[in-house]
Amino acid sequence: MAAAVSEYRREQSLPLPGSSAALYNNLSVLRARPPAAQLHRFSAVHGPSLSLLSAAAGLGLSQRQLPAREPGSGPSPALLTQAAWCPLPSRVLLVLTSHRGIQMYEADGSALVYWHGLEALEQPPAQALFARGIAAAGERFICVGTSSGPVLVFDVPPKGSNVALSQVLQGHGAAVTDIAAEQGQAPDGAGDLVSADDAGALCVWSSGEEFRLLSRVPACGCTCSSVALWQGTVAAGFGNGQIRLYEAASGRLRAQVNAHARWINALDLAPDTGKVRMGAGVLASHPAS
């Protein structure tokens, strides 16, 4: 365990322009991509706005608050539930979810590209309506989870605002908590997208022109708050402090870590090594392999 932790190196602290809400998975990072090879972006949700921080080597920091801009929101903007950058081969979009809908911005938050309202979703009585769980999948898709269980798949063009809802994935009976895409090289038949829900169920999907459900881990009665996917292995963090590793192709449990007494509130995975880092009141590191 000590060897895994020693591979991480602490860098200079970067202050966000505002405080962060107590939501799991409430930090998104866009790592530098050419041509802006030294520019990194960070974001965290607080209420109806998103704190954005851009950091470039030798150029200092750029900070701003991005308020949720939703059509017809009136005087009381909806509370944001999550934000994440979605890197696709042709473009990067910043996706925000809320109690009213899904917003897609250009990567720097400068322009609203697409808005999808949630009013059309069938919602059980007395259950909150919201979207949560965001991931890019395949060559041109962005997947977003909803409070009633379906995962919405959006087809994103190389440029412009002609985003279209192309498929609705049915596999969850509870609110989606997190979605993650394959960060390594998926073995044949293993799938490249995983979604989790409030009841602890996991669904592994194969992306393409038509997404297919490949395997499902049944609900365990404890929220699965965060997931990561690497080379056919699903890493999942739960509300009881457990971390579980599953075989993506079959849903078979491969390992279980009972090292935390608190809720696992986030997972991060190093795509080159498969090392998983998580937040649970304290931070720890475990190899997914």
Rank of each mutant, 00 (worst) to 15 (best):
Asp108Thr: 02
Ser90Thr: 11
Leu53Gln: 09
Tyr114Arg: 04
Gln127Glu: 11
Ser98Lys: 09
Glu70Ile: 12
Val92Glu: 12
Arg212Gly: 09
Gly58Ala: 08
Cys86Leu: 06
Gly200Cys: 05
Asp155Gly: 00
Gly149Tyr: 07
Thr146Tyr: 09
Ala181Ser: 15
Ser148Ile: 03
Phe211Tyr: 06
Ala199Asp: 15
Phe211Arg: 04
Ser289His: 11
Pro89Met: 11
Ser166Glu: 09
Gln170Gly: 02
Gly60Phe: 04
Ala186Phe: 13
Ala55Met: 08
Arg64Met: 03
Pro124Met: 04
Ala56Pro: 05
Pro67Tyr: 01
Ser161Met: 01
Gly173Gln: 12
Thr146Val: 03
Pro125Lys: 04
Ser90Phe: 04
Val227Arg: 07
Ser215Asp: 05
Gln256Asn: 05
Leu79Trp: 08
Pro48Thr: 10
Tyr105Ala: 05
Leu269Ser: 05
Cys220Ser: 14
Gly281His: 10
Asn25Trp: 02
Arg254Asn: 06
Leu129Trp: 00
Val45Glu: 06
Gly239His: 07
Lys159Ile: 00
Gly145His: 07
Val163His: 04
Ser62Tyr: 05
Thr233Ser: 05
Gln82Cys: 04
Leu61Val: 00
Val282Asp: 13
Arg69Leu: 02
Val168Asn: 02
Trp85Tyr: 07
Arg140Val: 01
Arg9Gly: 05
Ala111Thr: 13
Phe238Trp: 14
Val163Asp: 13
Asp198Met: 11
Glu70His: 01
Glu182Gly: 12
Cys203Glu: 09
Gly189Tyr: 11
Gln38Val: 00
Ser166Gly: 08
Ile142Leu: 10
Gln123Arg: 12
His46Gln: 14
Ile179Met: 11
Gln12Thr: 14
Gln231Thr: 13
Ala83Glu: 00
Thr81Glu: 08
Ser226Val: 02
Gly221Leu: 10
Ala56Val: 04
Ala136Arg: 10
Leu93Cys: 14
Leu112Val: 09
Ala22Trp: 07
Pro77Gln: 01
Ala284Lys: 03
Gly18Gln: 15
Asp178Glu: 07
Pro75Val: 03
Gly221Glu: 10
Ala44Ser: 14
Pro158Gly: 00
Leu16Pro: 07
Leu59His: 15
Gln38Leu: 08
Val194Lys: 00
Arg10Glu: 15
Ser98Trp: 13
His40Tyr: 10
Leu52Tyr: 12
Leu39Gln: 12
Asp108Gly: 14
Ser43Lys: 01
His99Phe: 15
Glu139Gly: 09
Cys220Leu: 15
Val204Glu: 07
Ala37Lys: 09
Asp178Trp: 10
Ala180Thr: 01
Ala266Gly: 06
Gly101Lys: 07
Pro71Ser: 02
Glu119Cys: 00
Val151Met: 03
Leu30Ala: 13
Leu66Met: 03
Asp272Asn: 04
Gly237Lys: 06
Met104Gln: 13
Gly189Lys: 08
Asn265Arg: 07
Pro150Val: 06
Ser62Trp: 09
Ala3Val: 02
Arg31Leu: 07
Leu39Ala: 11
Val163Glu: 08
Lys275Ser: 08
Val194Ala: 03
Val204Trp: 09
Ala107Lys: 11
Trp263Ala: 02
Arg33Ala: 14
Asp192Gln: 06
His46Ile: 01
Gly109Lys: 05
Val29His: 06
Cys222Lys: 14
